[in-house]
Simulated assay, not measured.
Amino acid sequence: MTPAEVAVLTALSPDRTLTAAQVQLAATLTTWRTRNALAHLESRGLIVPSHPRGRWQITPRGRAALTSKASRFR
């Protein structure tokens, strides 16, 4: 997991539902890094799109991954 992916999971944790722009601000990433991290995290089932459209939410699997991986990036 990349530092950008950890930052995105942290921004969405514990149960926040944010737009890509809100994730970008919370994670202090560029637009490209945010969208790339969102795509990779979604492909691995760690985040899911939420309603209303255009928002993202962390999954239980994503919370578990964050718990086990985040300590490497602190």
Rank of each mutant, 00 (worst) to 15 (best):
74 R>V: 13
35 R>Y: 13
70 A>P: 07
19 T>D: 03
42 E>H: 07
1 M>F: 00
47 I>C: 05
61 R>Q: 06
26 A>P: 07
23 V>A: 12
68 S>T: 09
66 L>Q: 07
10 T>A: 14
71 S>C: 08
28 T>P: 09
35 R>C: 12
30 T>N: 12
52 P>E: 08
31 T>Q: 12
49 P>F: 00
38 L>N: 02
57 Q>V: 14
24 Q>F: 03
70 A>T: 05
44 R>D: 02
62 G>E: 00
49 P>G: 02
59 T>G: 05
48 V>F: 09
7 A>Y: 02
1 M>A: 01
71 S>T: 08
55 R>W: 02
22 Q>V: 11
47 I>H: 03
36 N>R: 15
69 K>P: 05
11 A>T: 09
33 R>L: 07
65 A>D: 02
56 W>R: 10
58 I>F: 09
14 P>C: 12
68 S>A: 08
61 R>K: 11
40 H>A: 12
24 Q>R: 12
29 L>A: 04
60 P>G: 12
20 A>K: 11
7 A>E: 02
7 A>K: 09
41 L>V: 02
30 T>F: 03
58 I>H: 05
56 W>V: 01
27 A>G: 08
29 L>R: 11
1 M>V: 03
30 T>I: 01
26 A>Y: 06
65 A>S: 10
73 F>A: 06
48 V>T: 08
18 L>D: 10
56 W>I: 02
34 T>W: 01
70 A>N: 03
36 N>I: 11
22 Q>P: 08
8 V>M: 04
9 L>S: 04
51 H>S: 14
50 S>A: 13
23 V>S: 09
18 L>S: 11
65 A>N: 05
33 R>C: 07
32 W>M: 14
24 Q>V: 01
26 A>G: 10
52 P>N: 07
1 M>C: 02
7 A>P: 03
18 L>H: 05
62 G>V: 00
54 G>Y: 01
28 T>Q: 13
11 A>K: 08
50 S>L: 11
68 S>C: 07
60 P>H: 08
13 S>H: 13
71 S>L: 11
6 V>Y: 00
37 A>M: 07
17 T>V: 14
51 H>A: 13
28 T>A: 15
73 F>Q: 04
25 L>A: 15
66 L>G: 10
47 I>L: 09
67 T>A: 15
52 P>H: 04
64 A>M: 13
53 R>C: 06
9 L>E: 00
49 P>L: 03
